[in-house]
Each structure stands twice: as C-alpha cells, then as structure tokens.
Nucleic acid binder design. Structure first.
Length: 479
RNA sequence: CGGAGAGUAGCGCAGCCUGGUUAGCGCGCAGCGUUCGGGACGCUGAGGUCGGCGGUUCGAAUCCGCCCUCUCCGACCA
C-alpha cells in the first residue's frame, strides 16, 4: 500500500483529498474555495475537453467566447434565474479605483449574456438553429468547497442553443444528454443513469433539466452533467425573436448544457483504490509508463537501449513515458506511478533483455496477477489490447459495483435501508413536499426521474406518503 | 453561515496544559559513497516571520482577543 495513504474504505473523504494532492492533480489556492489545477490534472482535463469538443463539433456546434463580467441587471431579467443564483454570485463593485455605476457579476453561467447576443444575432428562421459552446471558468460562491467536486471557481463547457420549436430544443437537450452519457461510459468508464430533474432540483429558469447521475466509490450519487430545455423563458427575458416563414415574429426556444472539472472528481472516486488513482486509458495523460530495472552501469545501458526501442515502437500510438530517473529505485517508481493512476506499466530488466521480452503490469489488477511477460516482437498489439481490456474492465467493474448497491424498494422501511446502501429506484407521488420530507428524514435527495422508466406495478404507491405513485424516481445521498 | 477539529522546515507530526539558553523528530531535499526485479542504506549538510495582526509579560510557538486558511458534520450547490 502507498506510504501513509489513508485507506479508501476507512475514510473516503480523507482518501480523496490525499490522492488529489499526492497524485499532483491539484493544490489549494490561498483563496477559500479556489484551487490550482496542476499540469497532471490539467492534462486529464485537456483529454476530457478534446473528446467532448470533437463530439460537439460533429453535431454542428461551434465554439465562441463570451465575457467573464455580466452587467448585474442581466442576471435579474429572468425571475427564477435570479432567485436561484443570487446567493452564489461574486459581484464586482469597483474598477479602476472607482465605484462602478452598475456592479458587474462574475458569470455563474452565461445564459443571460449569451441570451443578450442571441437576441442581436437572430432575426430570421434562417438563422436557426444557432448552436454555440464555450469553454471557460465560472464562479459560484461555495459554502463548503471540495477539490474538483465543488469549488468557487471551476472550469467547464457551457453550450447554448436557440431553435425554432419546442420539439427542436427538446431534441437538442436530449442529444447532448446522450453525448454526455456516451462520454461517461466510453471515455471515463463510468456508467450513468440518464434522467429528468424534479421540479425542485431543476436549473433556475429551465423548463426541463436532464442529468446524468453516477455512483461514486462511497455509494453516493454525483451529478456528472446537465442539459436543460429552457423553453422560451430566456428568449422572453432577453427578446430572442425570429421572423418565421409565415411572417410572424416568434420567440425562440433555447437550451443550455454543461459538464465541468467535477468530472475529474468522478473519475477519481469511481475507479481509485488504496494505492491511489486508476485512470481510464482513454483519458489518462500517461497511458503507459516504462520502468527500467538495472544494477550495474552495463545493465543500465542495455536496459535503457531496450526502453528506447520500446518508446520508438509505441510512442506514436500511445501516450508513453519512460521513467529513466536514476535517483529512484524501480520499486519506488512502481508505487509512484500506481499512485498517479497510470493504467499500464512496462518493466524492463536484465532478465527481460536476455529473453527478448518485457513485463506488462495492469494498474487495475494489483500484484503478480496483473503481470505477464510479452515478447518484444508482439508488444505493440499486446499493449493496445491491454489498454482496451483495462478500459472495458473499469467500466464493467464500476457497473457491477453500482448494480450491487442499487435497490428497488416498494415500502418505506425498505427505502430507508436502500438509501443507506446506495441507489434507490422507488415509486414516487411527484409531490415536492414529499420529496423534501424524504430528504429531511434520510438525507437522500431525488437525483432524477430516470428516462428509462421501469413499469410501475398496478396500484403502486409512493414509497413515502402512500398516495398513488406517478413514476419511479432515483433517490440517493449525493454530493 | 451553525457545530467540531486543525494550522510549528516541502510533507507528516512533537513541544503549548505548567511562558525562560540555540524550537525538535520522521520523511523528503543537496553532496559523496555503497545499492537497485515492489517505496534501499551510510556519512555530511541546507532548510523555520512557530498562519496573520494586536495585547499581557522583563521574556510568548506556549497565555488572551480579533482575523485568515484547511478538514469533518449540517443548511446551499455543476
């Protein structure tokens, strides 16, 4: 086990804080709630960005950039939006040494400023749909920050689109949700539940909010991405109108959607173990680390020569690092790279040189069980296959874990036990008061109303109040 | 913002209760030598506004007040 690392099973929060810092992903900033994302953590974010950005562009979206500062009056134009975000706003009152005429809000999200411009840019049905995205930082004042999961400033992407009909906006919101879910499973190796947020949980100003919810290693839920059908709420607030084919002036239907650096937290909490991080190969900044093993100078020369050849063979195909630092022993490096979550290690020592082979070691399979020798001749294929196997097994393992802690209680007693253990899919009446009582009594919140609705049994009753159930909801304790 | 805990070398901690030479320990760091298939070892050395400000005192890491930061638990949230 890693030196001095708190065990995941003993204190999950402590474990999380330690691996984030010891793996050199992030550091605390001098300002409360803010963090520094270190190069290794940022490289992970860049890989997340790259794969999402490709998907956004493939579906017709273009990147743009809108300003950090938003006139205070903008935020107040949409009633629910103001109410939802006011407590979290950072407001700039001074600039250039003088008090500003109108305070500036540091964007908590950009619906308002983008709405303002959409109104200017859209005049005809021919301008629709308008599909933009921006990668940026946002600020939401946080009472209780946690690295990556909840910081006052965080990085994200926010997509904003305008459409000619409710149906198109709805289709957009759902398309993006599918992209998020596909990203989570294929890239981050995290299975997610797609669902609709209840009235009390939805985005301030949205008609409908969709979410992907994942189960973390402590069996708590994490919202990993949201996509909102904003209806005409922001269009009306900002005058986003177009002249339709029938020469009628109509309000647009808009959407917004985002995922943030919180995803990094999710990846850590889903896959990590007592040794540290386990990064899914498709997102890992370093997919393969080569560790040379030698005693004498002569052995060193021979081993490093093989390392060089391995780098040449694999370097263009996988993200690879040769750790040829002389000042650390091989065993030390094994632990170090395991802590940092590199999915596959290649060990090369004198015995391997003599045998014309190398030893591969899977991060997700500890000890001898995860090690095997591979002849140099077949290395490229074997490494690529191993990375695919690891990616697939991480998802499978995460899914098995989630499913083992997912329950379908039909009564209150069963429900209480279920949310103690993990996810509870339960019949629910749809009433916000009932939802609040459930939270007050169990700490579990309504995560979503799953899109994939199980058939409710005839005469199903709300798990809490006993009134007729309207649909199945997913309840869990959440971040 | 309410409750609890913490802040002393890069990291982890002791010292504080009971004020008093030069503030210690482990790891890490630097140099040299021996090592190297799962976190090696020896010797030498560098490194401190004791979180900040103010107070009490002949004297404060130690006592008092205010503030800042972090962690955990609550209310709010991507």
């Amino acid at each position: 086990m890693a030196q001095g690392l708190t065990k995941k099973s003993e204190d999950f929060s402590q474990w999380y804080n330690e691996i984030v810092r010891r793996a050199e992903l992030a550091d605390y900033a001098p300002v409360r709630g803010c963090m520094v994302i270190r190069p290794y953590g940022y490289a992970l974010w860049e890989n997340i960005q790259a794969t999402l950005d490709r998907r956004f562009k493939e579906t017709g979206h273009q990147n743009a950039y809108f300003p950090l500062f938003i006139p205070h009056s903008f935020i107040q134009k949409e009633a629910q939006h103001v109410e939802g975000f006011s407590p979290q706003l950072a407001v700039v009152t001074h600039g250039g040494g003088e008090e500003l005429e109108e305070p500036l809000v540091v964007r908590p999200t950009s619906e308002t400023i983008i709405g303002h411009f959409f109104a200017k840019w859209i005049s005809s049905y021919r301008d629709l749909p308008l599909l933009v995205n921006q990668w940026c930082n946002v600020v939401r004042w946080e009472m209780r920050p946690r690295l990556f999961l909840r910081t006052s400033e965080f990085l994200w992407q926010e997509g904003h689109t305008a459409h000619a009909s409710l149906e198109e906006a709805e289709a957009e919101a759902r398309l993006i949700l599918d992209i998020y879910a596909e990203f989570a499973e294929k890239e981050a190796a995290i299975p997610v539940i797609q669902g609709r947020k209840s009235e009390s949980e939805k985005f301030p100003g949205a008609l409908v909010s969709y979410t992907i919810e994942g189960m973390m290693g402590d069996r708590r839920a994490l919202q990993m991405g949201t996509s909102h059908n904003l209806g005409q709420n922001f269009a009306r607030a900002f005058g986003i109108q177009y002249l339709d084919r029938d020469n009628q002036l109509k309000y647009c239907w808009t959407t917004s959607w985002g995922v943030s650096t919180r995803l990094i937290g999710a990846i850590l909490m889903v896959h990590g173990d007592d040794q540290g991080l386990i990064l899914p190969p498709r997102l890992a900044p370093i997919q393969v680390v080569v560790v040379p093993i030698y005693k004498s100078a002569e052995e060193r020369t021979q081993v490093l020569e093989v390392c060089r050849r391995v780098q040449e063979a694999l370097g263009g195909r996988v993200r690879l690092k040769v750790d040829d630092r002389d000042e650390y022993t091989a065993g030390w490096k094994f632990n170090e790279w395991e802590l940092r979550g590199v999915p596959l290690r290649i060990e090369i020592g004198p015995r391997d040189v003599a045998a014309g082979q190398v030893v591969l070691a899977r991060r997700d399979v500890p000890g001898r069980e995860g090690k095997w020798a591979v002849p140099l001749s077949g290395l490229v294929e074997e490494v690529e296959k191993a990375l695919e196997d690891i990616q697939r097994d991480l998802l499978r393992r995460a899914r098995e874990f989630r499913d083992a802690h997912t329950h379908h209680p039909q009564d209150w007693e069963g429900f209480r036990e279920a949310v103690e253990d993990g996810f509870a899919f339960a019949p629910w009446c749809g009433d916000a008061g009932c939802e609040a009582e459930i939270q007050a009594e169990t700490k579990a919140t309504n995560r979503c109303l799953p899109l994939d609705q199980p058939q409710l049994p005839a005469g199903a009753k709300c798990v809490r109040c006993g009134r007729p159930a309207r649909e199945t909801a997913l309840f869990a304790r959440a971040y």
